[in-house]
């Protein structure tokens, strides 16, 4: 059985394009709304792509800007200039 990885972001204007990018790039992701936050679960692996977010906000997005919207996560992290990956091995 593939266990879920999970990421929770603030429900803010800054975070919404990131949430949109995640849901588009990870078709298996499920999104749950809570007061002031959004929890996204995805089986096995979830990716946040720099290109996808940049496209939505109309400027170059720095992957580390994710820190400004992040609440919590579950999974092993691998981050570089192009993407942020959350995965169970």
């Amino acid at each position: 059985m593939t266990r879920n990885v999970s990421i929770t972001l603030q429900n803010t204007a800054d975070a919404r394009p990131i949430i949109e990018a995640i849901t588009e790039d990870n078709p298996e992701a499920t999104v749950a709304d809570f007061p002031s936050m959004v929890k996204i679960d995805c089986p096995g692996r979830l990716v946040v792509k720099q290109d996808s977010v940049s496209e939505r906000i109309g400027r170059e997005w720095d992957v580390q800007e994710l820190h400004l919207s992040l609440i919590t996560l579950s999974g092993n992290i691998d981050e570089d200039d192009d993407q942020f990956v959350l995965a169970w091995t």
Binding site: Q10, F34, P35, S36, M37, H67, L68, S69, L70, I71, T72
Partner: peptide, 22 residues
């Protein structure tokens, strides 16, 4: 708890809470 703070109108706590949580 912080989501609960937001739900209960406690903007101050929810803000430090999520800022810390990041």
């Amino acid at each position: 708890f912080m989501s609960g703070a937001a739900y209960n109108g406690d903007l101050a706590t929810v803000t430090f809470g999520f800022s810390a949580q990041s």
